[in-house]
Simulated scan of single mutants.
Amino acid sequence: MLDKIIMYLQYPFVRYALIVGVLIALCSSLLGVTLVLKRFSFIGDGLSHVAFGAMAIATVAGLTNKMVIILPVTVISAVLLLRTGQNTRIKGDAAIAMISVGALAFGYLLMNIFSTSSNLSGDVCSTLFGSTSILTLTREEVWLCAVLSAVVVVIFVLFYNKIFAVTFDEDFSRAVGTKAESYNLLIAIVIAVIIVLAMNLVGSLLISALVIFPALSAMRIFNNFKMVTVWSAILSVVCAFVGMMIAILAGTPVGSTIVAADVVAFFACFLAGSIVRGARV
């Protein structure tokens, strides 16, 4: 087994896939804790469906660089989602459902009407559940992912205290002069960037798991925000690496295998947390 892993690691496309997968997992986990605590976990699900709709438009338009449409459309949708969610007539969960279902429906409709692909079902399935395109990344795509991931990490580190304050007590943050709306907007934009990065890795329908599961797993063991964030990042990176190696060795779908690894880690943390709490009692 070890010899087989070493053999695969000699191929550049495998190394590129692992680098991108680990970076995406790291970025996804950083803001997962914030989204869970703010009860806004499904924003990832809503934005991933928007990204699917944007990808459908880019595919119909015949663009080779789909990021030109997907990234700005997803970021704009994140801003609109935040603004709509603050509307007293349309609550946050309703806004997410509205945008999510609408974007998914229009995306699939466009691909059916205008697509020239001979395997439409395969294209849609690959977009929704992840595809092997993570194993065909070019060096330029790896660098783009690395730069965007570095930006996400730097933003999180620089504004960690503000994000912490807005997460736990938004009203108090406003009272002491913190521009809570601006930081909520920043969080939404960063999540939009993460969603776009993660589409090729796990697909539109599984992105939420990449954001939520590591945070929930870390919360089973730790109560401190910083420790939960750190362990969430560690678990996410380990699960992504293990999932991708299993997928490469066993020939299973990359996205589903990574999410399965996250699910196993969650139950392991749940059992460990139960044991620790029982020992304390």
Rank of each mutant, 00 (worst) to 15 (best):
L2T: 05
L2R: 13
K4F: 12
M7A: 15
M7S: 15
V14K: 14
V22T: 08
L26A: 07
S28T: 09
S29N: 08
L30N: 11
L30A: 14
L30G: 10
G32C: 09
T34K: 13
L37Q: 15
K38I: 01
R39H: 05
S41N: 10
F42C: 06
G44C: 02
G46K: 01
H49T: 01
V50E: 06
A54P: 02
I57K: 13
T59M: 07
V60H: 04
L63Q: 05
T64S: 13
N65P: 00
I70G: 05
T74W: 04
L80Y: 06
L81F: 14
G85R: 12
G85T: 01
Q86G: 07
T88G: 09
T88M: 11
T88C: 06
T88Y: 08
I90K: 09
K91T: 07
G92S: 13
A94E: 12
I99C: 12
S100K: 00
A103R: 07
L109Q: 13
L110G: 06
N112I: 12
F114R: 11
F114H: 05
F114G: 07
T116G: 05
S118N: 13
N119F: 03
C125W: 13
S126P: 01
T127S: 14
L128K: 10
G130M: 00
G130A: 05
I134A: 03
T136K: 08
L137G: 08
R139V: 10
W143D: 10
A146P: 03
V147A: 12
S149D: 09
V151Q: 09
I155G: 06
I155P: 05
F156A: 15
F156G: 14
V157P: 11
F159A: 02
Y160E: 13
N161K: 15
K162Y: 03
V166A: 12
E170C: 09
R174S: 10
A175R: 07
V176L: 13
G177I: 03
K179W: 08
A180V: 03
I187V: 10
V190Y: 02
I191T: 10
I194S: 10
I194R: 10
V196D: 09
V202P: 00
G203S: 02
G203Y: 00
G203A: 04
G203I: 00
G203H: 01
S204I: 05
I207V: 15
L210E: 03
L210Q: 04
V211G: 08
I212S: 08
L216P: 02
S217Q: 08
A218E: 04
M219N: 11
I221H: 02
F222P: 04
N223Q: 13
N224F: 03
V228H: 07
T229P: 11
V230F: 13
I234E: 02
S236M: 05
V237T: 03
C239L: 02
A240E: 06
F241M: 10
V242Y: 09
V242M: 12
G243R: 01
G243P: 00
L249K: 05
G255M: 03
V259W: 00
V259I: 02
D262I: 01
D262W: 01
A265P: 01
A265R: 07
A268H: 02
G273N: 04
R280S: 10
